[in-house]
């Protein structure tokens, strides 16, 4: 099976001269469709930069990034927006729900940009919310929901356009232990249905639940395919 995500000698450099930062430096790696993996590493190691790259929010400074067979570096802004809309779902640490919209409308938003009619939108948004266990809270606004519930709304929003990939940057960073478990169960479930899931996390317990851990350090992949069992001994990396 061809790779869903492939970095080839990819670098991302911010600034120039004295202030130059090599956020990613000559990274090569690949993730296949259906994988469930996490990215770990110290603060500033380039994890979020890699996620933004994977999510087509950014373009490489040099090297190539292929997503679903397409060379992202060659695509225009509108094409990238289209890929983000149809093939990728984002989940953020801070949820990023729009406060003036209900849960249903928040989840509908990606379908608005996909040009789906409002009747279909409402039906599918309600379905997605039911899938994450919020079938009873369709018409609540974010400030009427707990952190865990808000993150589940965000996950519903990420899956509603049936993406190939879910990208989650520290999705459990703002959640307590119990809600973290609930949210991770949802990711596991989605992965079981065939969606590729990639997440950044600082918590070994969270990474342990995924099937593959990619370690970053100083903008480079330090270690890939480390078995979750080895995690505890290498915790000093974080």
């Amino acid at each position: 099976m061809p790779d869903l995500i492939r970095f080839q000698n990819l670098s991302k450099v911010y600034g120039s001269g004295n202030t130059e930062v090599k956020a990613l430096w000559q990274v090569s790696m690949a993730i296949a469709p259906g994988e469930y993996c996490s990215i770990m590493g110290p603060s500033g190691s380039g994890k979020s930069t890699a996620m933004n790259m994977i999510g087509c929010l950014d373009r490489p400074s040099s090297g190539e990034y292929f997503f679903d067979g397409q060379d992202v570096g060659q695509l225009g802004e509108a094409d990238l927006a289209l890929i983000r809309n149809r093939k990728i779902g984002f989940v953020f640490q801070q949820f990023h729900l729009l406060p003036q919209l209900t849960a249903l409308d928040n989840v509908s938003l990606p379908m608005v940009y996909a040009g789906i009619s409002s009747a279909v939108r409402n039906e599918r948004a309600a379905e997605a919310l039911t899938q994450v266990g919020l079938g009873q809270r369709l018409h609540n606004r974010p400030n009427q929901l707990s952190g865990g519930q808000q993150q589940r709304v965000a996950i519903a929003r990420a899956i509603v356009n049936q993406p190939l990939l879910i990208l989650a940057d520290e999705p459990t960073g703002a959640l307590d232990t119990q809600t973290t478990k609930d949210v991770m169960a949802i990711f596991e479930q989605l992965n079981a249905e065939g969606i590729t899931v990639v997440m950044v996390t600082h918590e070994p317990e969270v990474a342990q639940l995924t099937h593959r851990v990619i370690w970053f350090r100083d903008g480079q992949v330090l270690n890939d395919h480390m078995s979750p069992e080895d995690m505890r001994q290498t915790a000093f990396f974080t």
């Binding site: 999510g55 929010l57 802004e77 509108a78 927006a81 289209l82 983000r84 809309n85 149809r86 984002f90 990023h96 729009l98 938003l109 990606p110 940009y113 996909a114 929003r157 356009n161």
Partner: peptide, 16 residues
């Protein structure tokens, strides 16, 4: 700003 960023992340183009 955040709303705009979020909208872009979920697929809004510059034109949208």
């Amino acid at each position: 700003t955040q709303e705009i960023g979020l909208r872009k992340a979920i697929g809004a183009s510059q034109q949208d």
